[in-house]
Amino acid sequence: MKKLKYALFTGCTAKQSTPEQMMSTMAVARKLDIELIELTEASCCGASHLQDYDDFLSLVLNARNIAYAEKHGLTMVTICNTCQLNTAMTKHRLDKNPELKARVNEKLSEVGLEYKGTSNVIHFLYAIIDDFGLDKIREMVVKPLSQFNIAPFYGCHNIRPSELHDESHKQKENPYNPTSLDDLIIACGGKNVDYEEKNKCCGFHVELQAPHTAAVLTGNAIAGATDNNADMMVTPCPLCHLKLDTQTKSASEAIGREVSLPVLHMQQMIGLALGCSAAELGLKHHVTEVNFI
């Protein structure tokens, strides 16, 4: 197989509140011999909040990010569900609407850039599934996670709206019964846990403006995983991770029950199975301690 090479859009959390996500992404890429060219010019995607304020500006900024991936002639890989949604949504809207694309390009031309629509935008999870292949992961596992029940937490913005995501994926995901993360857990030797909240919302986006709603959603998710005998959770989204890892106190208070589970980033889970060390994967950066390593 030809060596896989992508333009990496890290997003903002990987550089700030989830350093372990950046570390484990690079560690896993090294193990899998995937080359990631970091888009250091990229701006924040707006996280679906700038979109509430100024839609056109958010389109221009996201188109600029994609334009840099296009300059490299590479598919853009995201490591955050919300980055994935906002970037792919921008691509979708510009590719479908030549008039809007022209208006955006008129602005981009002021800084010597152009959005062409030539680069696909996919989340790292689906790059691994669609391009690298789970069979190959399975062959490379040296330390299977066979002693663990692992609850997948998909995160909304990777699975909904399915119409958008189907455009960039080779293997379609059923948003009501997603399987990609379950398959990845199994490929890493773990036992996947089925529970009602696996495709539900973590509440991250309203943490400031509706803290009770956000806390109940987080609490329900951890409780659902716990009640189905999960030893840990795993998620492809750093925002879900922040919520599930750092907000257990408010979540427990909101649902009137003590809940807490170690939560791995998808990259950390793969890294563990491939034999990366805890230090390489940044496990010490978790607020809810990963106590089984």
């Binding site: 550089k15 350093p19 990229a42 500006l57 900024l61 602005k107 800084v111 010490k284 950066h285």
Partner: peptide
């Protein structure tokens, strides 16, 4: 746990001037 970046260490995007210019015009 090393999850907070201090204001003086805030990372910046490369070519920030482009971003600022686009914010101004768009």
């Amino acid at each position: 746990k090393g999850k907070i970046v201090m204001p003086w260490n805030m990372p910046k995007s490369d070519n920030l001037d482009e971003i600022q210019k686009l914010i101004k015009s768009s």
